[in-house]
């Protein structure tokens, strides 16, 4: 298994290079280094000299991909792409355009992002799976039918409405929690309840439907019939057999998501004023801070790959028959 993981990690390298290349190309079609300088230097009284100085200082005065004037290897290495990308692989993200250290920033912002994402993820998993089991338990009854209808209806509501509505009712009309903001430590739950609950409710529709399908698929298998024939109670069948055997399809969808929880949620974080990585990314997009966007994309893709590897490993844990070579 160790060898397998090592091989997967090696496979990941070309993917990460590809990701880097794509982001880089996309970003520099949008923004010439001149634009970035202007964005950072403000509106008033910006002189061409100031722009030149800004670029030189940050290494944006080099050619993008290929330097025709340089000699030998320098043709490729003395470019913005090379100098900016090579550091990424040792997780040196450099600085934001306004001078703050990106790695430092990411490490502090990760905490609030996780504080929202982790509870939302775990609770909504629990809630949706319980709902789905309930529906399957009552399959072919009015409860199942209306449950599915409710799910479809809930899926058809834009997530923006859940956030706007939740804030309006819970925080404004009923004064139950602060409308927005974030605090560390013991104060945190007051700020987290609303976004987490909104996140769970927003995901119930799609999640429940998805797990219901998985469970229905399992419940028609022979082993379930056998178990029932043995006289096991329906509840026992559900939790003892169906849930256990549905683990593989569940894991496929779930494990790959876990690492990316670090990235936070763009919309939730900016609506609720949570200083996490999601709002960091939005800010970076808005202020066209290339260094930050690239760092976030890089981390995102690395986390995704980690997620894929974790998924494979988790299979072996759930199902001893699966072997990784």
């Amino acid at each position: 298994m160790f060898a397998y993981v090592v091989r997967r990690v090696l496979y990941a390298i070309p993917i990460v290079i590809g990701v880097n290349l794509i982001t880089f190309a996309l970003f520099f079609v949008v923004n010439t280094p001149d634009d970035m300088a202007r964005m950072q230097l403000g509106i008033k009284r910006v002189t061409p000299e100031a722009i030149h100085k800004w670029k030189a200082e940050r290494g944006y005065d080099k050619p993008l991909f290929y330097d025709g004037q340089a000699e030998g290897r320098d043709k490729f290495t003395n470019t913005i792409f090379f100098t900016k990308s090579i550091r990424m692989f040792v997780f040196d993200f450099g600085r934001e355009d306004n001078g703050r250290d990106i790695a430092n920033e990411i490490s502090t912002r990760m905490v609030p992002s996780l504080a929202i994402a982790l509870p939302t993820f775990i609770l909504s998993l629990l809630v949706t799976i319980s709902f789905a089991l309930l529906l399957v338990l009552f399959r072919a009854t009015y409860l199942d039918f209306w449950g599915v209808v409710l799910c479809v209806a809930m899926m058809s509501v834009s997530s923006l409405f859940y956030i706007i509505g939740g804030q309006f009712l819970v925080a404004k009309l009923w004064n139950l929690v602060p409308i927005s903001g974030y605090a560390n430590g013991l104060d945190a739950p007051r700020f987290l309840i609303l976004p987490v609950v909104v996140g769970i409710i927003g995901g119930i529709g799609a999640g429940t439907r998805w797990y219901r399908t998985i469970f229905l698929e399992e419940i028609n298998r022979d082993y379930v019939r056998t178990a029932r024939a043995k006289g096991l109670s329906e509840l026992r069948v559900m939790f003892g057999h169906v849930l256990k055997n549905a683990m593989i399809p569940i894991l496929t969808g779930v494990v790959v998501v876990i690492p990316t929880l670090f990235l936070g949620s763009l919309i939730t974080e900016s609506f609720f004023g949570i200083p996490g990585l999601g709002s960091y990314t939005i800010d970076a997009i808005n202020s066209q801070d290339f260094a930050v966007v690239r760092a976030m994309v890089f981390i995102g893709s690395v986390l995704y790959i980690i997620g894929l590897i974790l998924t494979d490993i988790s299979y072996t844990l759930v199902d001893p028959r699966v072997r990784l070579q």
């Binding site: 990314t281 994309v297 995102g300």
Partner: peptide, 12 residues
């Protein structure tokens, strides 16, 4: 393509 966070790719 898949490993780039969707919103970021779309935004860019």
């Amino acid at each position: 393509l898949n490993s780039i966070p969707g919103v970021l790719l779309i935004a860019a």
